[in-house]
Design a protein around this nucleic acid. Structure first.
Lengths: 362, 362
DNA sequence: CTGAAAGCGCTAACAA
DNA sequence: TTGTTAGCGCTTTCAG
């Protein structure tokens, strides 16, 4: 690490205020304000003079002052569990697109997966720095003994629901998605399964697992034979599951992971030890992150429409802001069949082989 | 897409102000303000009464009002070319860590790779919503006919330098990194090379390429024989380079890509057509993103210390904020030798084989 | 259509 | 140590 030449630092220069503009245009500050907010109420001539003065001075209204008066900030706080996670980044883009189109900005509250980060965002809300909150976390942030919801701001969630909060949300139907994964694998004739779970308290994971199990049972498969590995949605958990898989005498022939990261971690681990995907074991992921179509083999997965989830979530909060009561929404999460799934190495010994029910329209 | 039950919307409730607290504590608003900002200047008794009143009312100071008075916002705008890019996300975490520790918050300005997004952030700066700007983009954002720099706020850049701006920056030494990539490949006995470039106007890419070429020439290799493919740092450009590679009769045996995404795109494309990495062709990437160690084979790459780049960048701007003139800094970017590089399939026919110079201490 | 004036909630002189 | 006062820059009645 070496130093380069120092740079010049800039001293903040006082910028033009509404008074400067008013003086220059020969009108009152009220007229300047109106020329900007309600041009119709100002004579053409006055408006022209004001605009000229604005251009000449380079005036931009001070937002802090405007907020103080108007008692709103035109900002939405977006709570993100972990901004470095590809999954959330794409949702953020969707939110951003929609919010900006309505004149709102967004402040990103990155929890970095740490609870101790919550209080600062609770303070942010209570100190009036935002008009509403959009959360991608299933927890209601807590700080200094109060919950973020207690501030009374409009709030909605994306990809998660906060039980008993009554907050509007948009997400995919995780149960249905788990069912689809099971159906796909059963149709390929798999009989022995493994499931790599998300965090124990994660409702999405609970739903995915329940759907998956329901799908297996609908096909007459005793889910007691299914191996359940703990996980946390991240790569290493998939790798750990892979190691356990390798250590088993009788291995599942099909794995459903509650996230793509874990599915990829699993694939990577077993592949290195000579297990072939999908010839020896099929793998289904969840989320449809960018890298799910880059890994080799490409990953069969359930795609969460992340950009759309973001957009719809933003619309939810915009409706709240207008005083409406938006309805929560479920978006479809299609199964993308790619290279990581195939029939099992040899058909299972069981005599009876059920047909899986035809896929429901989704 | 189906609808779920509607949720209750919450009406914003007026929160306690400094007056409420003052009244309840039986002191003036000034005392309340001081009890918070400079507790030493307030009697124990008054302070206790104020604190009790604060707790009772749930008072949180209004930031807009405070900003208006103090003429600062304790916020830093961070300009990001594309928030969905893994590379930037990790830098953001570094910035966040450092800024938060100093009491600053950050507003993320996502350009989404679109120039038309610039004006809103220029306005943000001119409207006094932030105290400083940290940019990960080589462009100085322009909007409404004025450059962001014209606002006169402290500004610094990370991973890029803005030519002739005099803005302090922190980045890796791209030339040196390119040199290291060349040296590594030359030491493996490669003689025919390919380079997958970044955007034509990207100075980082220019430096990387220059370093790479210099490294080849230092080893007596005529760089006219090197194939140069255009690119933009993203996956598809690497895939395109891969397709061109496949179409060639005489193929390079070693590829240096200016980003991991392109390296992975290249690997994926040629691997699918039966070319083996590293047996048939070696690949070196740049950046060290998370997936560079997940792909198979794992990618030899130059690691940019992203978290540290973020931290140092944040420190740069914090020094500016204190009125100091920080020096620009170069951080080391180590070469991580992994599985994607090996000696060429057969030693080149040339008789003479130079020893590359010993690696310089870095 | 326009201007005067009253604050939004807070902090920082300045007195007391 | 504390209170009084005067705004920060803007919007919005209320008169004119």
């Amino acid at each position: 690490m070496k130093k380069a030449q120092p740079a010049t630092s800039r001293s903040p220069r006082r910028s033009a205020t509404i008074h400067d503009v008013a003086k220059r245009a020969g009108v009152s500050t009220a007229t300047v304000s109106r020329a900007l907010a309600t041009p119709d109420l100002v004579s053409d001539e006055a408006r022209a003079r004001v605009m000229a003065a604005i251009k000449a001075t380079g005036y931009t209204p001070n937002v802090a002052a405007r907020n103080l008066r108007a008692r709103r900030t035109m900002m939405v706080l977006v709570i993100v569990p972990n901004i470095a996670n590809d999954f959330f980044a794409e949702i953020l883009r969707g939110i951003d697109d929609e919010l900006v189109a309505s004149g709102y900005g967004l402040i990103i509250g990155n929890l970095d997966n740490k609870e101790e980060r919550e209080p600062r965002y609770v303070d942010l809300v209570f100190s009036g720095q935002v008009d509403a909150v959009l959360s991608l976390s299933a927890r209601v942030p807590i700080g200094n003994g109060r919950a973020m919801t207690a501030a009374g701001l409009p709030m909605a969630t994306i990809c998660v629901g906060v039980p008993e909060s009554g907050l509007p949300f948009v997400m995919v139907d995780n149960h249905k998605a788990g069912l689809a994964a099971a159906r796909h694998l059963v149709e390929l004739d798999h009989r022995r399964f493994g499931y790599i779970a998300g965090p124990a308290d994660n409702m999405n994971d609970v739903q995915r697992r329940a759907g998956f199990v329901a799908g297996l049972e609908a096909a007459g498969i005793d889910s007691c034979q299914t191996v359940f590995w703990p996980g946390d949605f991240y790569f290493d958990a998939g790798a750990a599951a892979g190691r356990d898989f390798l250590s088993r005498a009788e291995r599942p022939t099909a794995i459903f992971a509650a996230s793509d990261y874990m599915a990829i971690g699993f694939m990577k681990t077993v592949t290195l030890r000579g297990v072939r995907v999908p010839e020896d074991v099929s793998v289904v992921g969840f989320d449809g992150i960018q890298f799910s179509e880059v890994v080799a083999p490409t990953l069969t997965t359930i795609r969460q429409p992340r950009h759309e989830l973001g957009r719809v979530g933003a619309r939810l909060i915009l409706e709240c802001l207008k005083g409406e009561m938006p309805a929560s929404t479920y978006l479809d999460a299609p199964l993308l069949v790619r290279e990581s799934t195939a029939p099992p190495p040899k058909l299972a010994g069981r005599a009876r082989r059920r047909r899986a029910p035809a896929p429901a329209a989704s």
